[in-house]
Amino acid sequence: MNFDQFAYPLEAYGLPSREEMLDYRIWDDHYHGIDQHEEVMRYVTRLGIERVISLDIGGREYREKAHREILEKQRDRVLGIIRIDPSRPEESVAKMEQWIRNGPCIGIKYAGGNEGVTCSHPNNDPIISLARELKAVVYIHAWIKVGGNPRRLGGDNGKSESSPMDVAILAKRFPDVPMTCGHSGGDWEIGARVVRPYENVNFEFAGSDPHSGQVDYAIKILGEDRIVWGGHGPSRCLANELSKILDANLTKEQRMKVFGRNLRRVCAPIMRQKGYSVKI
């Protein structure tokens, strides 16, 4: 199996060449491959992704040493953020001290808490206040799942699962803290409208089926400076996630923003603070 070869050149099929993919300087804010890292990175490298951010760092003691080693030895390719739990603000803050202030990580992810606590809960204030102080990247898993009885938008959300509406509440409370509404809120047509008024909210499409026209729409609603890209490998294919952007009517400059520059702008303050190299 040779990962360095393609059956045919990408550009022969109307796709960007691999060299063009490299030129886009693609940063992946949604990497789930840390526990199968070597294997997953073969696909990441194959399609020219410059850097990935793992959202699965820490939390499992038996993996922590391996995670730290990857983050230290492969810093030019892999960054990390930790999961926090809004139902346990004190534990979360302690984890941020350990992994961000005194460790290699650059941010936090809301993956959904316990006990019905979403990211909009007041529990989050000490967490976000510390994130502001550390200049930490803030990623929020957000979905609107249709379901319930009667069927309605968000009716099938987990009881601790944040929605774009929760992101909007949090963003309004902390207008000076940049944060990312993950998964385009699940339902991107609704999600983009929910977060539109909050300039500190970026929008990311990873981890959902690709829909033609969705990025054109999001840029129309939110502007080209508020879209960031994620790969969601290995469970989602890079083809899926890349196609969302390639489908959109964007100039090269716009593609570069969406594929990486917007995310680098969010990451740069804490990266520079930590002495990590970053060129926006």
């Binding site: 690709p210 899926n240 890349l242 196609s243």
Partner: peptide, 13 residues
Amino acid sequence: YMPFENALLKLFE
């Protein structure tokens, strides 16, 4: 419904 590039890129990924 889906972007054409999704299926096409799978052949290259």
